[in-house]
């Protein structure tokens, strides 16, 4: 089943086209990475998905139903960010009580365990919590909401390495216990790459890549050789070229047949896979003009 479908979503703020004709499908049961540089439109997109924002154009479907003013599917989606202004004045216990009343499938049994794990006390006032713990509370609510679709916007912000590790493990454990669809926007690509089943990449309001991780890994190549090796890469989708002296590094997102790889190696090129982080940088970085 399709958990989320966006059809031709556009959203403009004054003179900024935040989203420009965005279309994609997210299948139920996946852990999706939403990647993009600062200002690429990730948060706007998440806000559109949960209908907090009304897009100028296009339509959002949740669990294959139109999302707008649809209580069934909107009660089954949870959107949490690193910090939620509306929580500031309240104690944790009050926030959790509100969440429990709001989400029909709230998992109270799990709450206590997660609070202890992230060292959050029910009596603490949200605004007085550290940044990492505020984010952790958002994560806890997302997990305990019991919603079929959970959106996390940079939920790791401010968390220390231990808290993040716990969060990743919990996420995987949750996904096995009660499979649902997670969409996670992140800049910690290297650290989180292994968690994801799929990736949607945004650049300046447009989707530039939407693939599953296995396909991505199978098409991401880093070929290193000399400038003149470029002839052997003709017709391939070269994302970026970087030279260090006469050594040239080509980042390529394309299919290669086994014989093609063999031929490249024979020509003296070294071929490895490009990591998700390298792919992201190759796709979205502006070429740097180095002055000599």
């Amino acid at each position: 089943m399709k958990a989320i479908e966006c059809k031709n979503i556009s959203k403009r703020f004054a003179d900024v086209q935040a989203l420009d004709d965005v279309s994609f499908v997210m299948e139920a049961g996946g852990i999706y990475a939403l990647l993009g540089r600062n200002g690429a439109g990730k948060t706007t997109l998440l806000n559109c998905i949960c209908t907090r924002y009304v897009p100028d154009n296009g339509e959002v479907f949740l669990q294959e139903e139109p999302a707008v003013e649809n209580p069934r599917v909107l009660g089954d989606i949870c959107f949490m960010t690193e910090h939620i202004d509306e929580f500031d004045l309240y104690a944790v216990k009050r926030i959790l009580k509100m969440a429990a009343a709001f989400y029909p499938k709230w998992d109270e049994a799990r709450v206590e365990q997660l609070l202890t794990l992230f060292q959050i006390r029910r009596k603490d006032i949200y605004a007085a919590l550290s940044k990492g713990r505020q984010a952790a509370l958002g994560f806890i609510i997302g997990v305990c909401s019991g919603c079929s679709v959970v959106l996390f916007d940079e939920i790791y912000s401010g968390m220390d390495a231990v808290a993040r590790k716990q969060m990743y493990e919990l996420l995987l454990e949750e996904q096995e216990r009660q499979p649902r669809t997670f969409v996670i926007s992140t800049h910690l690509i290297e650290e989180m790459a292994g968690l994801f089943t799929d990736v949607v990449m945004l650049d300046r309001g447009s989707v530039i890549l939407a693939d599953d991780m296995e396909t991505i890994h199978g098409r991401s190549y880093k070929c290193v050789g000399r400038e003149e090796h470029k002839a052997h890469l003709e017709g391939k989708n070269i994302l970026s070229v970087q030279t260090v002296g006469s050594v040239t590094e080509y980042m390529i997102y394309d299919d290669f047949a086994e014989e093609e790889l063999l031929k490249l190696r024979k020509q003296g090129m070294s071929v490895t896979a490009m990591t998700l982080q390298e792919l992201f940088i190759a796709y979205t970085a502006e070429p740097l003009q180095v002055t000599k």
């Binding site: 852990i31 590790k165 990743y168 493990e169 995987l172 454990e173 996904q175 096995e176 292994g194 968690l195 994801f196 089943t197 991780m213 296995e214």
Partner: peptide, 14 residues
């Protein structure tokens, strides 16, 4: 596979 996935921080499907 769950235990393995959690330890190596890998998607259980993989």
């Amino acid at each position: 596979t769950n235990q393995f996935a959690a330890v190596y921080r890998m998607n259980p499907a993989t």
